[in-house]
Design a binder for these strands. Structure first.
Lengths: 171, 171
DNA sequence: TGCTTGAATATAGCCAGGCTAACGAAATCA
DNA sequence: TGATTTCGTTAGCCTGGCTATATTCAAGCA
């Protein structure tokens, strides 16, 4: 009635690759570390979003606006919508929320009078720099502690994780 | 008016650690790989959740229930609420949604008549195994491709990322 | 110039998924 | 046994998505 191998689809791979128990153990440790890190990230993201009273998408939007603005680009609602993968209608409400919270301003677009330039307020830019910057610094430090060869190993592993998985895009 | 260092808080760390340009470049590559992987994960999660017509929390709940059940544990709504970090009221609605979608059943708890045992249906268990299992297999394969020393490097790096960041819990 | 078509944002109204408060039923404790 | 605590549910609210539609302006053309 209950299949004990349910959460253990590794057997097939293990069998194919001829790994011994010790190898499997190490691999599992890597995966566990990966899982732990993701969980930490998720939790910290929840904490900092609670702190700034923003939802996940709003936060992503803010990061995007700040990044673009720091490169001197004019950020329009349409561009935000596209970046986030949501509709422009939802983006209008999103900007309403950010504006109500004093995070952004709607300024006229310099050349297209149909459009807008969304600008982040100075206070929010500072706050974002503090919270986002902290976790960025943590990542930076961790990567900086590695030797050159180790960095190469880690980078390769990460690319390996992300790379060939782009197959199941289905629309 | 516009500070070009806004998204570049790395300068201080770089300065402290006495890294040269080449080092910085490599570190940035590591971080970029990290970011790319996270983005991939996020996108794929969106895709598979759309496929199963489930929200993020519902999916997490399902994974939790399947995992516990596979260890022979009785899963109660309260335990689900605690694991997800949401209220029991929200969990009631969550279970309503999962039950309406045919993903779980409310069965009587074997020993406590106030409580319930939430059970995943066979169909959903199979579907979850397929989608979740695929990305798990991808991670497993990537980790399996590493040598023993490389696995150690990666694990250490990941722990380093997740580890000391648990300081800012602020309730 | 004046008209038409398309682009960019906004509005209205719907649904999902969180929350708090209050409740009933069962377990537990004095 | 009676009081208290625990567990899940219900009711009602708010946020953040969506679609469909409206509004305003830009751009191309007769």
């Amino acid at each position: 009635m209950m299949d004990p191998r349910v959460m253990d689809p590794d057997q097939e791979i293990v069998h194919r690759s001829g790994m011994d128990d010790r190898d499997v153990d190490e691999v599992v440790r890597v995966l566990e570390a990966l899982r732990a890190w993701r969980e930490t990230e998720r939790r910290m993201s929840v904490v900092s979003r609670r702190y700034m009273k923003l939802g996940e998408t709003d936060m992503r939007a803010l990061r995007y606006i700040i990044a673009m603005q720091s490169h001197g680009r004019v950020v329009t609602p349409g561009a935000i919508a596209e970046h986030l993968g949501i509709t422009t209608a939802s983006t209008t409400k999103l900007i309403d929320r950010l504006a109500a919270g004093g995070h952004v301003l709607r300024s006229p677009h310099p050349s297209d009078r149909r459009s807008l330039a969304i600008e982040v307020t100075e206070d929010t830019r500072r706050a974002a720099r503090e919270t986002v910057g902290r976790s960025h610094a943590r990542r930076f430090t961790a990567a900086a502690r590695l030797t050159a060869q180790e960095r190469e190993v880690v980078t390769r592993f990460l690319h390996d994780l992300a790379g060939p998985g782009t197959d199941e895009e289905q629309t």
